[in-house]
């Protein structure tokens, strides 16, 4: 769970099944797959049958086999990365009608990317059921060069585009699916505190 008093950061209340939806689209990573298994156990017998699960993560063959077993009888697709998973999700939503329910479970960048993509299809962020699992890593946008730094586990962090040392602010943009990174030593260049690994 991410506990936070940041007003701009979404709340991820945990997955609960919408038994009315005619189909369920679930995007998760390796850690989030466990939340999906639990979701299925809380729903009726046909819920999983109505579900399509995209695991957007690099899985070992044994992990993939376990996922297939745990998530049956849902339709399961394993995509090699988060970005591949989002491409697949968009393809799927291109032709989808109303009556589907979207779920996301995993790291905050995964949830954020799902919410961001869904917005293009007119899906309100509040109608997406979300659960945070796994690493606390963040996606950070450098407010100066606008570049995104992925999988950030420290604060401060070096911008992977312009090289400035960024303070990761507790301010989150749903549209960008990222936290804001602001130059930490703008007032006193070189005055940089040690990096702390606080988003492990």
């Amino acid at each position: 769970m991410t506990i936070s008093t940041i007003k701009s950061r979404p709340i991820y209340p945990g997955l609960s099944p919408d038994l009315n939806a005619r189909s369920n689209i679930i995007v998760c990573d390796k850690a989030g797959a466990a939340a999906v298994t639990e979701l299925f156990s809380r729903a009726d017998a046909t819920f999983a049958k109505r579900s399509t699960v995209f695991i957007a993560d690099a899985l070992q063959e044994t992990e993939a086999a376990t996922a297939r077993k745990d998530l049956a009888p849902a339709t399961l697709e394993i995509l090699p990365s988060l970005s591949a998973g989002i491409v697949r999700l968009r393809e799927f939503l291109d032709n989808a009608p109303m009556g589907l329910r979207l779920y996301a479970a995993g790291t905050e960048p995964l949830i954020g990317s799902v919410v961001q993509a869904a917005a293009d299809y007119g899906i309100d962020h509040l109608s997406i059921r979300t659960e945070h699992r796994g690493s606390l890593m963040r996606r950070v946008q450098c407010v100066h060069c606008k570049g995104f730094t992925e999988n950030v586990t420290t604060n401060p962090v070096t911008c992977s585009h312009c090289g400035l040392t960024l303070f990761v602010r507790d301010h989150y943009s749903r549209r960008l699916a990222a936290f804001q990174g602001v130059c930490i030593d703008a007032e006193n260049p070189g005055d940089v505190p040690p990096m702390e690994a606080i988003y492990q």
């Binding site: 007003k7 946008q141 749903r174």
Partner: peptide
């Protein structure tokens, strides 16, 4: 960064 946010979010 803030465009698209609601009243509480942009005042965060």
């Amino acid at each position: 960064f803030d465009v698209g946010m609601n009243f509480f979010e942009w005042h965060a």
